[in-house]
Design a protein around this nucleic acid. Sequence first.
RNA 1: GGGCUCGUAGUGUAGCGGUUAACACGCCUCCCUGUCACGGAGGAGAUCGCCGGUUCAAACCCGGUCGGGCCCGCCA
Length: 436
Amino acid sequence: MKRVLTSEVSQHAGKEIKVQGWLHKKRLLGGLNFIVLRDRGGLVQIVVEDDAEVEKLRGLQIGTVLEVTGKVHKEERAPGGAEIREPKITVLVPVEHESPIEIDKPLSHKPENLDTLLDNRAIGLRNLQEQAIFKIQAKVLEAMREYFKKNDFTEMNTPKLLAGATEGGAEVFKLDYFGKEATLAQSAQFYKQMMVGVFERVFETNPTYRAEPSATTRHMTEYITIDAEMGFVTFEELRSFAGGMLHYIVNKVWQDCDKELKMWNAQRPVLADPIPSIPMKEIHELYTKATGTGTVGEDDLRPDEEKWVCEYAKKNLKSEAVYVTEWPVSSMKFYHKINEKNPKVADRSDLLFRGVEIATVPMREHRYEVLVNQLKAMKGDPEAPGFKYYLQAFQYGLPPHGGFGWGLERTVEKIIGLHNVKEATLFPRDINRLTP
RNA sequence: GGGCUCGUAGUGUAGCGGUUAACACGCCUCCCUGUCACGGAGGAGAUCGCCGGUUCAAACCCGGUCGGGCCCGCCA
């Protein structure tokens, strides 16, 4: 007999079927008993009246792997409108140990309980509500891929084992590479720019590694970056493209993930089109005026300031996402493009969404000589292995281009309304966690 | 790296000097023919993170230590 998925059981009313899955819940009432079976399609209720069948489950815990054959009945009182009766139960894999965490009701996501949640991840993820986070994550990725493909991007994969740091700033992980020192990629930056010379438009969705000793709700040492780069593009076009992607993601997720979003009571974000922009200087002034905390003159936004400006944009600009523009050159990377009209600022925008930065969206300096000079000015050696091959691409012709690095887990966290990026990561890695 | 906090049955919490450490969920036994957070009766399960100190007496106070969390810095 062919296996039927729980989600398709109701289509087999009146027929004998076989289902396979995990014991999700036992409700033993006595003469009439209900067990709930979970498979990739969801849940199905099985009514067990035969004592001998009930007895097969004695001592077996949630998680036990079962095969059940029985007759499908349309039944209004059953969840999903159908159930399996007169079952013959076969225990495929008995589980005798009690589950370390419960999987049939919402798990605690309180910060102080995160350790339990993550230590028992393999079991906890069987919880339907936990699964929903990652179905939404998969949908976000699907939406991004679709959006890239519609815009004629080529998907690629660049190496994560590197000879040297790809850019200044973030700390890198160092490791032994057959006696030489290698690093883990802290960004696909250089490779995606090189690939502009090949495909014009490229993207990848791969891990990024940062050895930052950060212990916050927004940082991990390994996370997925959606890296994109496009040639022959103006700053305005680039910003419009990235903003369009957030719109596309939200539309897609709210179209396809209704059930999952409801499990978390996720509220659809209000987004203006185009995503509004506020220069950093103006944000500092507004924030200082509103809170009394003096940030005027600073070359970055404080975390609290990022939250504040998102609230401000929601209230005044009808958008829960906002671009921070006109970044001072004092905090720019050597490969960023300095604004042609105002040399005090770089052509960079950070996309803030519901209080956190989810993407950095800058233009790159594409002129070889200018780029080398900017590198040297920041004490970089153009001959170093980390830079040499990167610069080669420019020497042989790269058009004006720009791109972005977009944090997948932060995006999912904020779409759902979670409070820690680790909640939106299957097996998070941070300064305190390397397992499971 | 700095600051502030928290470690009590499998899980989530209460207790904050004084007999046997309490409650909920889960687990075990029994009852229960429409449950769906089933209900009812009973039961098992905790050297109160660890080490030391103060005290007649420490889960509780003090010091140290280990492990978390949150914020800042840094970063996406």
